[in-house]
Design a protein around this nucleic acid. Structure first.
Lengths: 228, 228
DNA sequence: CCGCCTTTGTGAACGTGTGCACGAATGCCT
DNA sequence: AGGCATTCGTGCACACGTTCACAAAGGCGG
Protein backbone atom coordinates (compact mmCIF):
# COMPACT_ATOMS: atom_id res chain seq x y z
CA UNK A 1 0.00 0.00 0.00
CA UNK A 2 3.01 2.26 0.31
CA UNK A 3 3.40 4.64 -2.63
CA UNK A 4 6.51 2.79 -3.79
CA UNK A 5 6.04 -0.85 -4.46
CA UNK A 6 9.30 -2.03 -5.95
CA UNK A 7 10.69 1.41 -6.50
CA UNK A 8 13.11 1.54 -3.60
CA UNK A 9 16.65 1.11 -4.77
CA UNK A 10 18.38 -2.04 -3.70
CA UNK A 11 22.16 -1.81 -3.06
CA UNK A 12 24.31 -3.42 -5.73
CA UNK A 13 25.89 -5.76 -3.23
CA UNK A 14 22.48 -7.04 -2.26
CA UNK A 15 21.34 -7.46 -5.85
CA UNK A 16 24.43 -9.59 -6.43
CA UNK A 17 23.50 -11.86 -3.54
CA UNK A 18 19.81 -12.27 -4.24
CA UNK A 19 20.41 -14.80 -7.04
CA UNK A 20 22.42 -16.92 -4.62
CA UNK A 21 19.67 -16.86 -2.03
CA UNK A 22 17.17 -17.66 -4.75
CA UNK A 23 19.04 -20.75 -5.85
CA UNK A 24 19.44 -22.01 -2.31
CA UNK A 25 15.81 -21.35 -1.49
CA UNK A 26 14.66 -23.12 -4.62
CA UNK A 27 16.77 -26.13 -3.72
CA UNK A 28 15.48 -26.14 -0.16
CA UNK A 29 11.93 -25.85 -1.42
CA UNK A 30 12.46 -28.86 -3.67
CA UNK A 31 13.69 -30.79 -0.67
CA UNK A 32 10.48 -30.09 1.14
CA UNK A 33 11.69 -27.33 3.45
CA UNK A 34 8.84 -24.91 4.15
CA UNK A 35 10.48 -22.42 6.44
CA UNK A 36 14.06 -21.24 6.85
CA UNK A 37 15.87 -18.97 9.29
CA UNK A 38 18.33 -16.27 8.29
CA UNK A 39 20.95 -18.26 10.19
CA UNK A 40 20.48 -21.36 8.07
CA UNK A 41 20.26 -19.41 4.82
CA UNK A 42 23.45 -17.59 5.75
CA UNK A 43 25.20 -20.87 6.43
CA UNK A 44 24.18 -22.31 3.07
CA UNK A 45 25.10 -19.11 1.29
CA UNK A 46 28.41 -18.65 3.03
CA UNK A 47 27.55 -15.24 4.40
CA UNK A 48 26.66 -13.48 7.63
CA UNK A 49 23.16 -13.92 9.05
CA UNK A 50 22.70 -10.22 9.71
CA UNK A 51 23.58 -9.58 6.10
CA UNK A 52 20.92 -12.01 4.97
CA UNK A 53 18.30 -10.29 7.07
CA UNK A 54 19.31 -6.86 5.86
CA UNK A 55 19.33 -8.01 2.26
CA UNK A 56 15.89 -9.54 2.55
CA UNK A 57 14.58 -6.48 4.36
CA UNK A 58 15.03 -4.51 1.13
CA UNK A 59 12.33 -6.68 -0.42
CA UNK A 60 9.99 -5.70 2.37
CA UNK A 61 9.45 -7.54 5.59
CA UNK A 62 8.50 -11.04 4.64
CA UNK A 63 9.87 -12.91 7.64
CA UNK A 64 8.09 -14.02 10.79
CA UNK A 65 9.89 -13.30 14.03
CA UNK A 66 10.56 -16.34 16.10
CA UNK A 67 10.05 -18.56 13.06
CA UNK A 68 11.94 -17.48 9.96
CA UNK A 69 11.01 -17.02 6.33
CA UNK A 70 8.50 -19.00 4.35
CA UNK A 71 10.56 -20.48 1.55
CA UNK A 72 7.95 -20.42 -1.20
CA UNK A 73 6.93 -16.85 -0.54
CA UNK A 74 10.53 -15.67 -0.38
CA UNK A 75 11.27 -17.37 -3.68
CA UNK A 76 8.31 -15.58 -5.17
CA UNK A 77 9.41 -12.20 -3.83
CA UNK A 78 13.02 -12.53 -4.97
CA UNK A 79 11.96 -13.68 -8.40
CA UNK A 80 9.65 -10.73 -8.66
CA UNK A 81 12.32 -8.27 -7.58
CA UNK A 82 14.88 -9.70 -9.98
CA UNK A 83 12.41 -9.58 -12.82
CA UNK A 84 12.36 -13.34 -13.19
CA UNK A 85 8.61 -13.57 -13.49
CA UNK A 86 9.09 -14.05 -17.19
CA UNK A 87 11.83 -15.30 -19.49
CA UNK A 88 14.54 -13.05 -20.82
CA UNK A 89 15.68 -14.34 -24.19
CA UNK A 90 19.36 -13.71 -24.90
CA UNK A 91 21.30 -13.51 -28.12
CA UNK A 92 24.87 -14.73 -28.29
CA UNK A 93 27.38 -13.04 -30.56
CA UNK A 94 30.28 -15.29 -31.47
CA UNK A 95 29.98 -18.99 -32.27
CA UNK A 96 33.52 -19.90 -31.30
CA UNK A 97 34.57 -22.12 -28.49
CA UNK A 98 32.88 -20.11 -25.79
CA UNK A 99 29.75 -19.24 -27.73
CA UNK A 100 29.21 -22.91 -28.49
CA UNK A 101 29.66 -23.88 -24.87
CA UNK A 102 27.23 -21.21 -23.74
CA UNK A 103 24.64 -22.25 -26.30
CA UNK A 104 25.02 -25.85 -25.19
CA UNK A 105 24.90 -25.02 -21.53
CA UNK A 106 21.42 -26.05 -20.50
CA UNK A 107 21.51 -23.86 -17.43
CA UNK A 108 20.60 -20.82 -19.45
CA UNK A 109 17.10 -21.61 -20.62
CA UNK A 110 16.56 -23.62 -17.48
CA UNK A 111 17.00 -20.47 -15.41
CA UNK A 112 14.84 -18.28 -17.58
CA UNK A 113 17.31 -17.10 -20.20
CA UNK A 114 16.54 -19.06 -23.38
CA UNK A 115 18.95 -18.62 -26.25
CA UNK A 116 16.96 -16.72 -28.86
CA UNK A 117 19.78 -16.92 -31.33
CA UNK A 118 23.48 -17.17 -31.90
CA UNK A 119 25.25 -15.20 -34.60
CA UNK A 120 28.74 -15.00 -36.04
CA UNK A 121 30.46 -12.84 -38.61
CA UNK A 122 32.24 -15.81 -40.16
CA UNK A 123 30.24 -17.25 -43.08
CA UNK A 124 31.79 -20.68 -42.63
CA UNK A 125 30.22 -20.95 -39.17
CA UNK A 126 26.81 -19.73 -40.28
CA UNK A 127 24.29 -22.50 -40.78
CA UNK A 128 25.82 -25.04 -38.46
CA UNK A 129 23.61 -26.13 -35.62
CA UNK A 130 24.67 -25.97 -31.96
CA UNK A 131 22.46 -27.76 -29.48
CA UNK A 132 19.38 -27.08 -31.50
CA UNK A 133 20.18 -23.46 -32.28
CA UNK A 134 21.23 -22.62 -35.81
CA UNK A 135 24.07 -20.13 -36.19
CA UNK A 136 22.96 -17.13 -38.20
CA UNK A 137 24.89 -14.30 -39.75
CA UNK A 138 25.55 -11.27 -37.61
CA UNK A 139 23.66 -9.08 -40.08
CA UNK A 140 20.50 -10.80 -38.94
CA UNK A 141 21.05 -9.50 -35.41
CA UNK A 142 18.55 -6.62 -35.60
CA UNK A 143 15.88 -8.95 -36.89
CA UNK A 144 16.46 -11.50 -34.15
CA UNK A 145 16.45 -8.85 -31.46
CA UNK A 146 13.25 -7.32 -32.79
CA UNK A 147 11.18 -10.40 -33.42
CA UNK A 148 12.23 -12.25 -30.29
CA UNK A 149 12.14 -9.13 -28.14
CA UNK A 150 15.67 -9.67 -26.88
CA UNK A 151 17.07 -7.15 -24.43
CA UNK A 152 20.17 -9.02 -23.25
CA UNK A 153 23.15 -9.71 -25.49
CA UNK A 154 26.15 -11.90 -24.78
CA UNK A 155 29.52 -11.02 -26.29
CA UNK A 156 31.49 -14.22 -26.79
CA UNK A 157 33.89 -13.08 -29.48
CA UNK A 158 37.66 -12.70 -29.40
CA UNK A 159 38.82 -9.42 -27.89
CA UNK A 160 39.42 -7.77 -31.22
CA UNK A 161 35.83 -8.21 -32.36
CA UNK A 162 34.16 -7.40 -29.07
CA UNK A 163 33.66 -3.68 -29.51
CA UNK A 164 32.10 -4.19 -32.92
CA UNK A 165 29.86 -6.88 -31.47
CA UNK A 166 28.78 -4.54 -28.70
CA UNK A 167 28.11 -1.72 -31.16
CA UNK A 168 25.94 -4.00 -33.25
CA UNK A 169 24.05 -5.24 -30.20
CA UNK A 170 23.36 -1.69 -29.08
CA UNK A 171 22.25 -0.64 -32.55
CA UNK A 172 19.98 -3.65 -32.71
CA UNK A 173 18.26 -2.46 -29.54
CA UNK A 174 19.77 -4.56 -26.80
CA UNK A 175 19.99 -2.73 -23.46
CA UNK A 176 22.09 -5.10 -21.35
CA UNK A 177 25.32 -6.86 -22.29
CA UNK A 178 27.21 -9.71 -20.70
CA UNK A 179 30.78 -9.43 -21.93
CA UNK A 180 33.15 -12.39 -21.94
CA UNK A 181 35.82 -10.71 -24.06
CA UNK A 182 38.89 -9.31 -22.32
CA UNK A 183 38.09 -5.77 -23.38
CA UNK A 184 36.53 -2.74 -21.73
CA UNK A 185 33.50 -2.01 -23.87
CA UNK A 186 32.52 1.53 -24.72
CA UNK A 187 28.74 1.80 -24.77
CA UNK A 188 26.12 4.49 -24.22
CA UNK A 189 25.51 5.33 -20.59
CA UNK A 190 22.08 3.75 -20.59
CA UNK A 191 23.40 0.31 -21.49
CA UNK A 192 24.11 -2.01 -18.60
CA UNK A 193 27.29 -4.03 -19.03
CA UNK A 194 28.65 -6.83 -16.89
CA UNK A 195 31.98 -8.41 -17.54
CA UNK A 196 33.21 -11.93 -16.98
CA UNK A 197 36.93 -12.24 -17.58
CA UNK A 198 38.49 -15.62 -16.91
CA UNK A 199 42.03 -14.33 -17.20
CA UNK A 200 41.35 -11.70 -14.58
CA UNK A 201 39.97 -14.29 -12.18
CA UNK A 202 43.00 -16.50 -12.64
CA UNK A 203 45.35 -13.59 -12.17
CA UNK A 204 43.66 -12.69 -8.92
CA UNK A 205 44.19 -16.26 -7.75
CA UNK A 206 47.77 -16.02 -8.95
CA UNK A 207 48.26 -12.95 -6.78
CA UNK A 208 47.16 -14.85 -3.70
CA UNK A 209 49.29 -17.86 -4.59
CA UNK A 210 52.31 -15.66 -5.08
CA UNK A 211 51.63 -13.95 -1.79
CA UNK A 212 51.16 -17.27 -0.06
CA UNK A 213 54.61 -18.33 -1.26
CA UNK A 214 56.00 -15.45 0.80
CA UNK A 215 56.59 -13.14 -2.09
CA UNK A 216 59.78 -15.01 -2.93
CA UNK A 217 60.62 -15.27 -6.61
CA UNK A 218 61.00 -19.03 -6.62
CA UNK A 219 60.60 -21.46 -3.68
CA UNK A 220 57.21 -22.89 -4.54
CA UNK A 221 55.39 -24.35 -1.56
CA UNK A 222 58.41 -24.14 0.69
CA UNK A 223 56.90 -22.62 3.79
CA UNK A 224 54.31 -25.21 4.83
CA UNK A 225 54.07 -28.56 3.08
CA UNK A 226 50.48 -29.27 4.00
CA UNK A 227 47.97 -28.59 6.70
CA UNK A 228 45.53 -31.50 6.69
CA UNK B 1 65.26 -1.05 0.85
CA UNK B 2 62.28 -0.76 3.13
CA UNK B 3 61.81 -3.87 5.30
CA UNK B 4 58.76 -4.90 3.29
CA UNK B 5 59.34 -5.30 -0.39
CA UNK B 6 56.13 -6.81 -1.72
CA UNK B 7 54.72 -7.47 1.72
CA UNK B 8 52.39 -4.53 1.96
CA UNK B 9 48.83 -5.66 1.51
CA UNK B 10 47.08 -4.51 -1.59
CA UNK B 11 43.33 -3.85 -1.32
CA UNK B 12 41.13 -6.45 -3.00
CA UNK B 13 39.53 -3.87 -5.25
CA UNK B 14 42.95 -2.86 -6.51
CA UNK B 15 44.07 -6.45 -7.08
CA UNK B 16 40.98 -6.95 -9.19
CA UNK B 17 41.89 -3.99 -11.39
CA UNK B 18 45.59 -4.68 -11.84
CA UNK B 19 44.95 -7.39 -14.46
CA UNK B 20 42.95 -4.88 -16.48
CA UNK B 21 45.73 -2.32 -16.35
CA UNK B 22 48.19 -5.03 -17.24
CA UNK B 23 46.31 -6.01 -20.37
CA UNK B 24 45.93 -2.42 -21.51
CA UNK B 25 49.57 -1.63 -20.84
CA UNK B 26 50.69 -4.72 -22.73
CA UNK B 27 48.57 -3.71 -25.69
CA UNK B 28 49.89 -0.17 -25.57
CA UNK B 29 53.43 -1.43 -25.36
CA UNK B 30 52.87 -3.59 -28.42
CA UNK B 31 51.65 -0.54 -30.25
CA UNK B 32 54.89 1.25 -29.49
CA UNK B 33 53.70 3.47 -26.66
CA UNK B 34 56.56 4.07 -24.22
CA UNK B 35 54.95 6.30 -21.66
CA UNK B 36 51.37 6.69 -20.45
CA UNK B 37 49.58 9.06 -18.09
CA UNK B 38 47.13 7.99 -15.42
CA UNK B 39 44.53 9.97 -17.33
CA UNK B 40 44.96 7.94 -20.49
CA UNK B 41 45.17 4.66 -18.66
CA UNK B 42 42.01 5.52 -16.79
CA UNK B 43 40.22 6.34 -20.04
CA UNK B 44 41.23 3.02 -21.61
CA UNK B 45 40.30 1.13 -18.47
CA UNK B 46 37.00 2.87 -17.94
CA UNK B 47 37.88 4.11 -14.47
CA UNK B 48 38.77 7.28 -12.61
CA UNK B 49 42.30 8.69 -13.01
CA UNK B 50 42.80 9.19 -9.29
CA UNK B 51 41.89 5.57 -8.78
CA UNK B 52 44.55 4.53 -11.26
CA UNK B 53 47.20 6.54 -9.48
CA UNK B 54 46.18 5.24 -6.08
CA UNK B 55 46.13 1.68 -7.37
CA UNK B 56 49.57 2.01 -8.90
CA UNK B 57 50.90 3.71 -5.79
CA UNK B 58 50.44 0.42 -3.93
CA UNK B 59 53.11 -1.07 -6.15
CA UNK B 60 55.48 1.71 -5.11
CA UNK B 61 56.08 4.99 -6.82
CA UNK B 62 56.99 4.14 -10.34
CA UNK B 63 55.65 7.20 -12.12
CA UNK B 64 57.44 10.35 -13.14
CA UNK B 65 55.69 13.58 -12.30
CA UNK B 66 54.98 15.74 -15.25
CA UNK B 67 55.49 12.78 -17.59
CA UNK B 68 53.56 9.67 -16.62
CA UNK B 69 54.44 6.00 -16.28
CA UNK B 70 56.94 4.07 -18.33
CA UNK B 71 54.83 1.32 -19.88
CA UNK B 72 57.44 -1.44 -19.93
CA UNK B 73 58.48 -0.91 -16.36
CA UNK B 74 54.90 -0.76 -15.13
CA UNK B 75 54.11 -3.99 -16.95
CA UNK B 76 57.05 -5.58 -15.21
CA UNK B 77 55.99 -4.33 -11.79
CA UNK B 78 52.38 -5.44 -12.13
CA UNK B 79 53.40 -8.84 -13.41
CA UNK B 80 55.73 -9.23 -10.48
CA UNK B 81 53.07 -8.21 -7.99
CA UNK B 82 50.48 -10.54 -9.48
CA UNK B 83 52.93 -13.41 -9.48
CA UNK B 84 52.95 -13.65 -13.25
CA UNK B 85 56.72 -13.98 -13.52
CA UNK B 86 56.20 -17.67 -14.13
CA UNK B 87 53.41 -19.89 -15.43
CA UNK B 88 50.70 -21.28 -13.18
CA UNK B 89 49.50 -24.59 -14.57
CA UNK B 90 45.82 -25.28 -13.93
CA UNK B 91 43.86 -28.49 -13.82
CA UNK B 92 40.27 -28.58 -15.01
CA UNK B 93 37.75 -30.89 -13.36
CA UNK B 94 34.83 -31.70 -15.62
CA UNK B 95 35.08 -32.39 -19.34
CA UNK B 96 31.54 -31.37 -20.18
CA UNK B 97 30.49 -28.47 -22.30
CA UNK B 98 32.24 -25.85 -20.24
CA UNK B 99 35.37 -27.85 -19.47
CA UNK B 100 35.86 -28.49 -23.14
CA UNK B 101 35.44 -24.85 -24.00
CA UNK B 102 37.90 -23.83 -21.32
CA UNK B 103 40.46 -26.38 -22.48
CA UNK B 104 40.03 -25.15 -26.02
CA UNK B 105 40.18 -21.52 -25.08
CA UNK B 106 43.67 -20.51 -26.11
CA UNK B 107 43.65 -17.50 -23.84
CA UNK B 108 44.58 -19.63 -20.85
CA UNK B 109 48.06 -20.78 -21.72
CA UNK B 110 48.59 -17.58 -23.64
CA UNK B 111 48.21 -15.62 -20.44
CA UNK B 112 50.39 -17.86 -18.32
CA UNK B 113 47.89 -20.50 -17.20
CA UNK B 114 48.60 -23.63 -19.24
CA UNK B 115 46.17 -26.50 -18.89
CA UNK B 116 48.15 -29.18 -17.08
CA UNK B 117 45.31 -31.61 -17.33
CA UNK B 118 41.59 -32.13 -17.58
CA UNK B 119 39.82 -34.86 -15.67
CA UNK B 120 36.31 -36.30 -15.48
CA UNK B 121 34.58 -38.90 -13.40
CA UNK B 122 32.76 -40.35 -16.40
CA UNK B 123 34.71 -43.23 -17.96
CA UNK B 124 33.13 -42.66 -21.34
CA UNK B 125 34.74 -39.21 -21.50
CA UNK B 126 38.17 -40.41 -20.38
CA UNK B 127 40.65 -40.84 -23.17
CA UNK B 128 39.11 -38.42 -25.62
CA UNK B 129 41.35 -35.56 -26.65
CA UNK B 130 40.32 -31.92 -26.38
CA UNK B 131 42.55 -29.37 -28.09
CA UNK B 132 45.62 -31.45 -27.50
CA UNK B 133 44.85 -32.35 -23.92
CA UNK B 134 43.76 -35.90 -23.17
CA UNK B 135 40.95 -36.32 -20.67
CA UNK B 136 42.05 -38.44 -17.74
CA UNK B 137 40.13 -40.07 -14.94
CA UNK B 138 39.52 -38.02 -11.85
CA UNK B 139 41.39 -40.58 -9.75
CA UNK B 140 44.56 -39.41 -11.46
CA UNK B 141 44.06 -35.93 -10.06
CA UNK B 142 46.60 -36.23 -7.21
CA UNK B 143 49.22 -37.47 -9.60
CA UNK B 144 48.66 -34.63 -12.06
CA UNK B 145 48.71 -32.03 -9.32
CA UNK B 146 51.90 -33.45 -7.85
CA UNK B 147 53.93 -34.00 -10.98
CA UNK B 148 52.90 -30.78 -12.71
CA UNK B 149 53.05 -28.74 -9.50
CA UNK B 150 49.52 -27.44 -9.99
CA UNK B 151 48.19 -25.05 -7.40
CA UNK B 152 45.08 -23.78 -9.20
CA UNK B 153 42.07 -25.97 -9.92
CA UNK B 154 39.05 -25.16 -12.06
CA UNK B 155 35.68 -26.66 -11.19
CA UNK B 156 33.66 -27.03 -14.39
CA UNK B 157 31.25 -29.74 -13.31
CA UNK B 158 27.49 -29.65 -12.89
CA UNK B 159 26.37 -28.24 -9.57
CA UNK B 160 25.77 -31.59 -8.00
CA UNK B 161 29.34 -32.77 -8.52
CA UNK B 162 31.06 -29.52 -7.62
CA UNK B 163 31.59 -30.08 -3.92
CA UNK B 164 33.10 -33.50 -4.56
CA UNK B 165 35.34 -31.99 -7.22
CA UNK B 166 36.46 -29.30 -4.80
CA UNK B 167 37.13 -31.85 -2.07
CA UNK B 168 39.27 -33.88 -4.43
CA UNK B 169 41.17 -30.82 -5.59
CA UNK B 170 41.90 -29.81 -2.03
CA UNK B 171 42.99 -33.32 -1.09
CA UNK B 172 45.24 -33.41 -4.13
CA UNK B 173 47.00 -30.31 -2.85
CA UNK B 174 45.46 -27.49 -4.85
CA UNK B 175 45.31 -24.20 -2.91
CA UNK B 176 43.21 -22.01 -5.20
CA UNK B 177 39.95 -22.84 -6.95
CA UNK B 178 38.05 -21.14 -9.72
CA UNK B 179 34.47 -22.35 -9.46
CA UNK B 180 32.06 -22.23 -12.39
CA UNK B 181 29.42 -24.39 -10.76
CA UNK B 182 26.36 -22.65 -9.28
CA UNK B 183 27.19 -23.83 -5.77
CA UNK B 184 28.79 -22.30 -2.71
CA UNK B 185 31.81 -24.50 -2.07
CA UNK B 186 32.81 -25.48 1.44
CA UNK B 187 36.59 -25.57 1.66
CA UNK B 188 39.24 -25.12 4.36
CA UNK B 189 39.89 -21.54 5.30
CA UNK B 190 43.32 -21.53 3.68
CA UNK B 191 41.94 -22.29 0.23
CA UNK B 192 41.23 -19.32 -2.00
CA UNK B 193 38.04 -19.65 -4.00
CA UNK B 194 36.68 -17.41 -6.70
CA UNK B 195 33.32 -17.97 -8.28
CA UNK B 196 32.07 -17.29 -11.77
CA UNK B 197 28.35 -17.83 -12.07
CA UNK B 198 26.77 -17.05 -15.40
CA UNK B 199 23.24 -17.35 -14.09
CA UNK B 200 23.97 -14.81 -11.37
CA UNK B 201 25.35 -12.35 -13.88
CA UNK B 202 22.30 -12.71 -16.08
CA UNK B 203 19.97 -12.33 -13.15
CA UNK B 204 21.70 -9.11 -12.16
CA UNK B 205 21.14 -7.83 -15.68
CA UNK B 206 17.57 -9.00 -15.45
CA UNK B 207 17.12 -6.93 -12.30
CA UNK B 208 18.22 -3.80 -14.11
CA UNK B 209 16.06 -4.57 -17.13
CA UNK B 210 13.06 -5.13 -14.94
CA UNK B 211 13.75 -1.90 -13.12
CA UNK B 212 14.19 -0.06 -16.39
CA UNK B 213 10.75 -1.22 -17.46
CA UNK B 214 9.34 0.70 -14.52
CA UNK B 215 8.77 -2.25 -12.25
CA UNK B 216 5.53 -3.02 -14.02
CA UNK B 217 4.57 -6.66 -14.18
CA UNK B 218 3.94 -6.74 -17.90
CA UNK B 219 4.07 -3.83 -20.35
CA UNK B 220 7.46 -4.59 -21.81
CA UNK B 221 9.00 -1.49 -23.29
CA UNK B 222 5.83 0.49 -22.92
CA UNK B 223 7.21 3.68 -21.41
CA UNK B 224 9.64 4.68 -24.12
CA UNK B 225 9.52 2.88 -27.47
CA UNK B 226 13.10 3.64 -28.44
CA UNK B 227 15.77 6.27 -28.09
CA UNK B 228 17.95 7.26 -31.05
C1' DC C 1 69.54 28.85 -14.54
C1' DC C 2 64.87 30.01 -13.68
C1' DG C 3 60.04 29.86 -14.07
C1' DC C 4 56.18 27.47 -16.04
C1' DC C 5 53.50 23.62 -17.14
C1' DT C 6 52.30 18.93 -16.56
C1' DT C 7 51.37 14.98 -13.95
C1' DT C 8 52.10 12.28 -9.94
C1' DG C 9 51.21 10.94 -5.09
C1' DT C 10 48.27 11.37 -1.24
C1' DG C 11 45.44 13.62 2.64
C1' DA C 12 40.80 14.24 3.52
C1' DA C 13 35.89 13.97 2.71
C1' DC C 14 32.38 11.23 1.26
C1' DG C 15 29.71 7.13 0.10
C1' DT C 16 28.91 2.24 0.34
C1' DG C 17 29.05 -2.17 2.62
C1' DT C 18 29.53 -5.10 6.81
C1' DG C 19 28.62 -6.89 11.32
C1' DC C 20 27.33 -6.36 16.05
C1' DA C 21 23.94 -5.89 19.33
C1' DC C 22 19.56 -5.31 20.88
C1' DG C 23 14.59 -4.09 20.87
C1' DA C 24 10.35 -5.93 18.98
C1' DA C 25 7.39 -9.38 17.48
C1' DT C 26 5.79 -14.00 17.26
C1' DG C 27 4.80 -18.93 18.39
C1' DC C 28 4.84 -22.47 21.82
C1' DC C 29 4.48 -24.56 26.21
C1' DT C 30 2.65 -24.82 30.63
C1' DA D 1 -3.54 -16.48 29.66
C1' DG D 2 1.11 -15.59 30.73
C1' DG D 3 5.88 -16.29 30.34
C1' DC D 4 9.70 -17.86 27.64
C1' DA D 5 12.55 -19.02 23.82
C1' DT D 6 13.40 -17.82 19.25
C1' DT D 7 14.21 -15.05 15.32
C1' DC D 8 13.42 -10.94 12.72
C1' DG D 9 14.38 -6.00 11.64
C1' DT D 10 17.44 -2.25 12.19
C1' DG D 11 20.30 1.58 14.47
C1' DC D 12 25.00 2.30 14.96
C1' DA D 13 29.86 2.00 14.57
C1' DC D 14 33.44 0.59 11.86
C1' DA D 15 35.96 -0.84 7.65
C1' DC D 16 36.56 -0.40 2.95
C1' DG D 17 36.45 1.93 -1.45
C1' DT D 18 36.03 6.12 -4.27
C1' DT D 19 36.75 10.77 -5.60
C1' DC D 20 38.32 15.42 -5.08
C1' DA D 21 41.71 18.64 -4.62
C1' DC D 22 46.17 20.18 -4.09
C1' DA D 23 51.08 20.28 -2.83
C1' DA D 24 55.31 18.24 -4.47
C1' DA D 25 58.24 16.86 -8.13
C1' DG D 26 59.95 16.64 -12.35
C1' DG D 27 60.85 18.13 -17.46
C1' DC D 28 61.29 21.79 -20.82
C1' DG D 29 61.76 26.16 -23.09
C1' DG D 30 63.73 30.48 -23.04
Amino acid sequence: MSPERSRRRIPDATVARLPVYLRILTEQGDEGVDSISSERLAELGGVNAAKVRKDLSYLGSYGTRGVGYEVAYLVYQIRRELGLTHDWPVVIVGAGNLGQALAGYGGFSERGFPVAGIVDIDDTKVGSVLSGVRVRHIDELPQIVQTKRVSIGVVATPGGAAQDAADRLVRAGVTSILNFAPVVLAVPRAIEVRKVDLAVELQILSYHEQRRAGGAIHAVGAARPASA
